[in-house]
C-alpha cells in the first residue's frame, strides 16, 4: 500500500462524524420533544404524539407567524438583490478603481457588525423623539413619526436594516462578478450602440445568471436568521405584526408559557420546510 493513502479518511472522517452527530442528535431530540407535552417547569412529560402539530394549525398566532415569515423572506430577499444589483452596477459604471476599493471596504462593514448593534443603531435613528433620521420630519412638520409602531412601518424598518447589512455586501460581490466577466461581449454591445441599461439587461446579467441565483439562495438562507434584528427592534410588535416563526417559537418556549414541546413542534415544521425547499432548489441548480 502506498504511503499516506489514509489521508482522505483521516482528514474527512472525524470531521464528518462529529458534524453528523452534532446535527442528527438535536434533530432527533427536536422530533422526540415535539411529540410530548413537556414544559420548562415540569420535569415529567408524556407522549401526546401529534397533538402539538394539530394544535398549531388552529393557532391563529402560528398562522400569522408563518405569514409574517413568508412576507419577510420575500421582502428582504428581493430588496437585498435589487439593492445589491443597483449599487454593484453603479460601482462598475461610475467608480474609478481607487474609489471601488474604498467603497468595497465601506460596504462590507455593515454585514460584519453584530446584528444586535446594527439593530440598536437604527432603532435609535428611528426614535420618534430623539432619532436623527426622524429629525427632519420633526423640524418641518412638528409631528413625531413613530415608524416602529405601525405594522407595515415596523416590518419595512426591520427589512431596511437587513438590506443595509446584506444589500451593500452583495453589491461588493456583484461588482467582483462583473469585473470577472470577459470584456469582449461588452465592447461588442457598445459598438452596437447599446445603452448602459441594455448592456446590463441583455449582456452582463444573463451571463451572471448562475452566480446570481446562488447569491439569491444564500440570502434566502440568511434571511431565516432574522431573530436578533426583530428581537431588538420590535420584539415582534406592534402586536404580533412582525412576529416571525423563530420569534413566536421563542416566546412560546421561553417567555410566556415555557411550552417547550409546542415550540419544538414549530421548530420541526420550520426545519422540514427549509430543508426540503433548499435541498430541492440547490440540487436542481447545481445539476
Amino acid at each position: 500500500m502506498r504511503r499516506g493513502r489514509s489521508l482522505p479518511y483521516v482528514f474527512l472522517g472525524p470531521t464528518l462524524g462529529i458534524l453528523i452527530v452534532l446535527a442528527l442528535v438535536p434533530t432527533i431530540y427536536a422530533i422526540n420533544i415535539s411529540l410530548q407535552n413537556r414544559t420548562l417547569s415540569a420535569p415529567n412529560a408524556d407522549y401526546v404524539w401529534f397533538a402539538n402539530y394539530l394544535a398549531l394549525f388552529s393557532d391563529a398566532r402560528f398562522l400569522n407567524a408563518l405569514w409574517v415569515s413568508f412576507k419577510w423572506e420575500i421582502i428582504s430577499v428581493t430588496a437585498t438583490m435589487v439593492t445589491g444589483l443597483a449599487i454593484g452596477i453603479a460601482m462598475f459604471e461610475a467608480a474609478s478603481p481607487r474609489m471601488r476599493n474604498i467603497l468595497c471596504v465601506l460596504f462590507i462593514i455593515p454585514v460584519l457588525l453584530p446584528r444586535v448593534c446594527a439593530a440598536f443603531v437604527w432603532k435609535f435613528a428611528f426614535h420618534p423623539l430623539y432619532g436623527a433620521l426622524t429629525w427632519p420630519v420633526r423640524e418641518l412638520t412638528g409631528i413625531t413619526p413613530d415608524i416602529l409602531s405601525t405594522p407595515l412601518g415596523a416590518l419595512l424598518a426591520v427589512a431596511f436594516v437587513d438590506v443595509w447589512q446584506w444589500g451593500l455586501f452583495f453589491a461588493v460581490i456583484i461588482l467582483k462578478l462583473l469585473e470577472s466577466l470577459p470584456p469582449q461581449p461588452l465592447e461588442a454591445a457598445r459598438i452596437d450602440r447599446a445603452t448602459r441599461f441594455e448592456i446590463h439587461r441583455f449582456v452582463t446579467l444573463p451571463m451572471l445568471k448562475a452566480p446570481l441565483i446562488s447569491l439569491l439562495l444564500v440570502k434566502a438562507i440568511e434571511s431565516l436568521r432574522s431573530f436578533d434584528l426583530v428581537y431588538v427592534m420590535t420584539r415582534g410588535g406592534p402586536g404580533i405584526s412582525t412576529e416571525t416563526l423563530d420569534m413566536y417559537a421563542y416566546s412560546q418556549g421561553f417567555i410566556e408559557a415555557g411550552k417547550i414541546s409546542y415550540a419544538s413542534s414549530m421548530a420541526v415544521i420550520m426545519m422540514v420546510l427549509t430543508i426540503v425547499t433548499f435541498t430541492f432548489t440547490w440540487k436542481r441548480l447545481n445539476r
Partner: peptide, 20 residues
Amino acid sequence: FVLSLRFLPPVAIAIPMLVI
C-alpha cells in the same frame, strides 16, 4: 451536507440543545 447545516433554523437547534 456541510452546506445543509446552514439550512437548519437556529431555533430548531436551540430547543433540543437546551433539553440536551
